[in-house]
């Protein structure tokens, strides 16, 4: 236990920041890159998780439990978002028989 506790003393906070920003950027690239709606939903989950990890890192480095409570709330929101998003996806598959995101551009015109 003491070994694990000493870990955050060695690693600078910037490295956690770089990791989380890289994960977030990969999520953004995935949303722009793919046309499959289910992969886009997964990339959104990845972005939420990178923010969660950064909140937990700041909370540990500052010894402030509020950040970890926020992570808990973000998990709640993510679970609700996935439930609604996947039911939208099921409805989309039923109505247009495809999960191509480019078919959903009717609001544009």
């Amino acid at each position: 236990m003491e070994n694990i506790t000493s870990a955050i003393r060695i690693i600078p906070l910037e490295h956690y920041l770089f990791l989380c920003l890289a994960l977030f950027s990969i999520g953004v690239i995935g949303v722009l890159f793919r046309r499959n709606t289910i992969v886009i939903l997964m990339c959104i989950e990845m972005m939420l998780n990178s923010v969660n990890l950064l909140l937990a890192a700041f909370s540990s480095y500052r010894s402030d439990p509020s950040g970890q409570v926020f992570v808990f709330f973000i998990m709640v929101v993510a679970a609700a978002e996935v439930a609604v998003g996947l039911s939208i996806l099921v409805m989309m598959k039923r109505n247009v028989d495809s999960i191509d995101i480019n078919l959903l551009n009717k609001l544009k015109d």
């Binding site: 694990i4 990890l53 937990a56 540990s60 970890q68 992570v71 998990m75």
Partner: peptide
């Protein structure tokens, strides 16, 4: 990573 950050509860919930 959560376990490394001493956030054991978050790791399990995650």
């Amino acid at each position: 990573h959560y376990i490394l950050l001493n956030a054991q509860f978050l790791a399990v919930v995650h």
